[in-house]
Design a binder for these strands. Structure first.
Lengths: 232, 232
DNA sequence: CGGCATCCGGGAAGATACTG
DNA sequence: CAGTATCTTCCCGGATGCCG
């Protein structure tokens, strides 16, 4: 039963598009419901089944199982065991899987202009950090080099800004120029809501350490595109 | 019943992702089966229902109706009547809808590296011409300015290459530097298969007019990305 | 003929319970 | 924790028919 699934890579003949267009093939690869969001959640590094399930509220275990099988069968991710003593099974994107990030970026940038986009919905740590990479304005970041630490509860991330790009990895920053600690919605308010850092700190939602003027500038580097109908 | 559909824009609550991530919202907008391919087929200008259905082999009339309703409800396309004497109803992308082209490009470029991509499947005129825009290598086109005519049976298209970009519109070219006439697969063979124009002309599959040396250079401007596993 | 509604079968998605 | 089994619901795709 599992062997059958692996041998027919991708959807059955019924669900193929029979179209040489690359975009059509892309939809066969990651166009199934939840598939691209699974890829998104793995974009900052491997995760285990339960964390994926927790970070994709609404997905059911059997659908997640099926998507992971399909994405593995076509070479977008691999199932691997962490070395002892962890020895847990995790799912990790292949190099080609990591190359899917521009899909998330272009789709996200375009959809952010939608009148029906609701930015008040919940956001995972991964998708917030990826959104920073997406929305970073290279012009505003011109000539700026810095290391930034993020801490959301237990998990820490490190961002390195330079050459108009923002690299992000899991783990504590070594000697960050600035660091943020708090929940995702607080950082969203600062970066996308334009709420002053001082207010968020006063309310206890966010803790900022390091060069505070630099932090205030950092959160302005990520302009949202104008909504449809507004000038732009 | 139709009003219900229009008032709940996008999928029902069950099928929403409940995720503020732009990519997730993008999937709610164009993530349904066939939706993005409908957008693709409209990318070079408005089309009528029957032509859409013919250009998307496999889609059924009711699904096409449903996708057109949904895409109209969220503002990606509009249903409009051509002026008399044509007076036919056509579907046309909104300006925001046309801005979805980079999604097709990024998805297509990424999926072209897939080991399972089958370039021998049929390709519509629209998706072939869009693929030229996608795959154009600005470095190879450096300093090149030309007008190119395409004719596939009844329909003609005009391409304008300049500044490392290729603009394409429907209609006969005025004074093209080069022109191709034939079926899509013949042009595919020339551009992506590396088959010499002379061979294709000898077999009668393709007719080339204008500056033949320029035509031979033109078809080399669209390199395919390396497959996964090959260097690149 | 173009556009759309209706009905039906198959299959994918979703929810829940259960197992190694 | 990492899935599997089962059941239900809903969507997709095909066929048919209505109506302008």
């Amino acid at each position: 039963m599992k062997l059958e699934k692996i041998t027919n890579c991708g959807p059955g003949p019924r669900r193929r598009y029979n179209d040489a267009c690359g975009a059509a093939h892309g939809l066969e690869l990651v166009g199934d419901r939840w598939a691209l969001l699974v890829v998104r959640e793995l974009m900052l590094g491997p995760k285990r089944f339960c964390d994926l399930k927790a970070d994709l509220p609404g997905i059911s275990a059997n659908v997640l199982t099926q998507r992971l099988e399909e994405l593995e069968a076509v070479g977008i991710l691999t199932r691997c065991k962490l070395p002892p003593p962890a020895s847990v099974q995790v799912y990790e994107l292949t190099p080609w899987g990591y190359e899917a990030e521009p899909i998330l970026q272009v789709l996200g940038r375009w959809a952010a202009r939608s009148p029906y986009h609701d930015p008040t919905l919940p956001l995972t740590e991964t998708s917030f950090l990826l959104s920073l990479r997406t929305m970073l304005d290279p012009a505003r970041a011109e000539g700026l080099r810095l290391t930034v630490g993020f801490r959301f509860g237990a998990q820490a991330y490190t961002g390195c800004l330079g050459d108009g790009q923002l690299a992000i990895r899991r783990g504590e920053a070594e000697n960050p120029d600035i660091a943020f600690e708090g929940a995702v919605p607080a950082l969203v308010a600062a970066v996308y809501g334009g709420q002053p850092l001082s207010e968020l700190e006063a309310s206890g939602a966010l803790t900022v350490t390091g060069d505070r003027a630099l932090a205030a500038r950092f959160v302005t580097l990520f302009p949202l595109p104008p909504k449809v109908g507004e000038e732009g």
